[in-house]
Amino acid sequence: SSQSQGISSSSTSTMPNSSQSSHSSSGTLSSLETVSTQELYSIPEDQEPEDQEPEEPTPAPWARLWALQDGFANLECVNDNYWFGRDKSCEYCFDEPLLKRTDKYRTYSKKHFRIFREVGPKNSYIAYIEDHSGNGTFVNTELVGKGKRRPLNNNSEIALSLSRNKVFVFFDLTVDDQSVYPKALRDEYIMSKTLGSGACGEVKLAFERKTCKKVAIKIISKRKFAIGSAREADPALNVETEIEILKKLNHPCIIKIKNFFDAEDYYIVLELMEGGELFDKVVGNKRLKEATCKLYFYQMLLAVQYLHENGIIHRDLKPENVLLSSQEEDCLIKITDFGHSKILGETSLMRTLCGTPTYLAPEVLVSVGTAGYNRAVDCWSLGVILFICLSGYPPFSEHRTQVSLKDQITSGKYNFIPEVWAEVSEKALDLVKKLLVVDPKARFTTEEALRHPWLQDEDMKRKFQDLLSEENESTALPQVLAQPSTSRKRPREGEAEGAETTKRPAVCAAVL
Rank of each mutant, 00 (worst) to 15 (best):
K294L: 03
D459S: 05
V384I: 10
G284V: 09
R315I: 06
V269N: 13
E309P: 00
N259I: 08
L467P: 06
V480R: 15
G392E: 03
G494W: 13
E471H: 05
F260C: 15
L278V: 11
T347F: 09
V322G: 02
E493D: 09
M273W: 04
I312R: 04
G498C: 09
F416M: 03
T475L: 06
D330M: 05
T352I: 02
L278M: 10
L301A: 12
P440S: 00
F338N: 00
S341A: 15
L382G: 02
T358L: 12
S367R: 11
G276E: 12
L295I: 11
N310H: 12
Y267W: 07
L301P: 00
S325L: 09
I243H: 03
K334S: 04
T336V: 02
D457E: 14
K289Q: 12
V377N: 00
D378W: 04
S326R: 02
K463D: 03
E290A: 10
N415L: 04
W380E: 00
M460E: 09
V304S: 04
N285W: 14
Y306P: 00
E264Y: 03
R351P: 02
E471Q: 14
L353K: 15
E471A: 06
P491A: 15
G412R: 10
D330T: 08
E363C: 00
K318N: 02
C331S: 05
Q305E: 13
P252D: 08
T292V: 09
E264K: 14
Y296Q: 05
F260A: 06
Y359N: 03
Y373R: 02
K489I: 01
K342N: 04
P505V: 09
L302G: 01
K281C: 09
E447F: 07
E271S: 14
M300P: 04
E426Q: 14
L477V: 03
Q465G: 00
L481I: 10
S326M: 08
Q465A: 04
E244G: 15
P319H: 01
W380K: 01
L431I: 06
K281L: 09
G369V: 09
C293K: 00
T352F: 02
N374D: 09
Q456D: 15
G494A: 08
M350P: 05
Q327P: 13
L450I: 08
L302A: 03
V282M: 12
T358N: 11
Q299C: 06
E448G: 01
K247V: 15
L477G: 00
N250W: 04
R315V: 01
N321Y: 03
T347A: 10
E309A: 10
G284Y: 10
K489F: 10
G311H: 07
Y266F: 09
A510Q: 15
R462V: 00
L324K: 01
M273F: 07
S367T: 13
E320F: 05
